[in-house]
């Protein structure tokens, strides 16, 4: 077992983990944070994308043991995040959720695209979403919802 201390959704934890435990299983099995979905478990589908030290990462490719001293946010911890709020609203109104399996990873990646200023055009958003698979193939609505949220966030930035 490996002893780790980490910050998860803005609360501190200290736990012993088996080296083979992934961050995704740490979140899902120990903390009941089931927004983090596991699709492929080898880094291709993007459904398990979470934030590690503020940057998107595949929770299936991250060992829990390597999360010592790191700050983790799963989608549950971003409830009050303004960019996630804009995305939640636009995903809802534009019907960007079909079965919902890819949605948590889509939201985390979309938030990162907007924050890095990489959601300026449809082509840019599509390229930025290459690492998040939607097998309902609802990309059209997802892309337009992200474009709308990017505009909303930009307008909020100007108003502020």
């Amino acid at each position: 077992m490996t002893a780790i201390r980490f910050r998860l959704n803005d609360a501190d934890f200290a736990e012993d983990v088996a080296p083979r435990l992934s961050l995704a299983d740490l979140l899902r099995e120990r903390h009941n944070l089931t927004a983090t979905h596991l699709g492929c478990e080898h880094g291709v589908c993007g459904a398990c994308t979470v934030l590690v030290d503020g940057m998107p990462a595949r929770a299936c490719l991250m060992l829990a043991a390597a999360c010592d001293d790191r700050q983790i946010h799963s989608l549950e911890g971003l409830r009050d995040d303004p960019v996630i709020a804009a995305l939640r609203d636009s995903f809802h109104r534009r019907h960007a959720v079909q079965c919902g399996f890819c949605t948590p990873g889509m939201l985390i990646s979309a938030r990162d695209l907007i924050q890095r200023g990489r959601a300026g055009s449809e082509a840019e958003i599509r390229a930025g979403l290459a690492g998040n698979l939607c097998r309902c193939t609802g990309y059209t609505n997802i892309v337009s919802a992200i474009a709308e949220a990017a505009q909303t966030v930009a307008a909020q930035g100007k108003a502020a």
């Binding site: 880094g43 695209l113 690492g131």
Partner: peptide
Amino acid sequence: LAYRAVRNR
């Protein structure tokens, strides 16, 4: 190279 979530690590 791969995807942003992969490039971050």
